[in-house]
Design a binder for these strands. Structure first.
Length: 134
RNA sequence: GCGGAUGGCCGGAUGGCCGCGGGCGGCAACGCUCGAGGAAAGUCCGGACUCCACAAGGCAACGGUGCCGGGUAACGCCCGGCCGGGGCAACCCGAGGGAAAGCGCCACAGAGAACAGACCGCUCCGCAUGCCGGAGCAAGGGUGAAACGGUGGGGCAAGGGCCCACCGCGGAGCUGGCAACAGUUCCGGCACGGCAAGCCCCACCGGGAGCAAUGCCAAAUAGGGACCUCACAUGGGCGGCCUUGGCCCGAGGUCCGGGUCGGCAGCACGAGCGCGCGGGCAACCGUGCGCCCAGAGGCAUGGCCAUCGAAGGGGGCGACCCCGGAACAGAAUCCGGCUUACAGGCCAUCCGCGCGC
């Protein structure tokens, strides 16, 4: 057990004023469009992202956990961790007008320490954004 | 105490911070409240509910069920009983109607496997006394999953239901039981092998598709119909051709019907759950009181932390200490079952053995 300073809980360094206007992707076409765009792989998950270019400022996010991840329990748990991750990071680090998709990996998505997954997502976002800028 | 049988239950706990889905209140900020399972699983049976078809019923085909009685909305489920088999016992297992309607099959071995048959044999007779011929027999040996009744006695040349007793089998009666069936008496004569999970026969049951069912509301765009107004001017088309006349092809408006995206309903108050009482051996039924118990549509029930923590490891003579951290698994129209998966634990009843009193 790593003793953590109690005055530094994880969620308090969120930007307080950001409107949490995340929406979830609902259409297969949106998922496919993201899959064809920018990608960044991390040990716990794969990030896909693209600029919709429709002028809307909202950030949208989708989650994918295929049968390769495991049975229904494993898939649900993976998606829940990814959802929790997206809620904490994307309102601060995501770009307005973009869609993101987080793809779960077998075992690692459920097992990797959450703090590392948070760092992974921040780095992956930078990578995807940088690739889009050049 | 040890070993076993059956039935049932639980299957991580508490708290903090940040979140998610539904409901309620509020203009809002926000607050309150509820939020996975015994299997939510497999989708194997039975229903509810919808739409389609047919509506009385009968026959045929196909599929299913199959000891008896009860329970239930219903079932292939459950309860109680019967029969057969296993176990010292508690108890467990069994698709358990019909093979004296018919067809088919019964490998290998064996003489012979279904309206019997004679390999080794047994007995008698004959003589040419032999590895002979004739006649009788099916008890004994051997094969097999199964051998055309079994055991004992009489009888016989040797044998054989040939005769007798008992058992088995079949028929009739009586007694008990709602029944399956059991017990018993008399009679018969040995006539009747197994498989129905091969076909079949008999009895009973069964329309089809499914919540992405189905119903309602209904935008833009394109298109359909009715009416009104304008244009009815050029042009085109139609009635064989020409003239006159008519209709259609145009624009605008109103209305109607179908209908995609989308929205709403179905969609969670029910064959509901808990406790008590009554009936019943039980499954279950009746009744009183109390309760409201997930409801999404990219699919909520999560992330992090703290305290505690079963199994399992390791150390110690020991109290105890250290490591370790929870099985199978995640609702999608809803119920009743079945089946399958499941770390570990708890409770109740019963049986056998041992010890003590």
């Amino acid at each position: 057990m790593t003793p953590k300073p109690p005055e530094a809980p994880v969620a308090t360094d969120l930007p307080p004023a950001v409107c949490v206007c995340l929406q979830t992707l609902r259409r297969r076409a949106d998922f496919l469009a993201c899959a064809r765009a920018r990608k960044a792989a991390t040990p716990g998950f794969i990030l896909q992202g693209r600029d919709r270019g429709d002028g809307e400022a909202i950030v949208r996010v989708g989650f994918t956990a295929s049968k390769k991840v495991g049975n229904a329990v494993a898939r649900n748990r993976a998606k829940r961790r990814l959802r929790a991750l997206a809620r904490e990071i994307l309102p601060g680090k995501g770009r307005p007008g973009w869609d993101y998709v987080l793809v779960a990996r077998r075992d690692e998505t459920a097992r990797r320490p959450f703090a590392e997954m948070q760092r992974d997502l921040a780095k992956a976002l930078e990578k995807v954004h940088r690739a889009a800028d050049t």
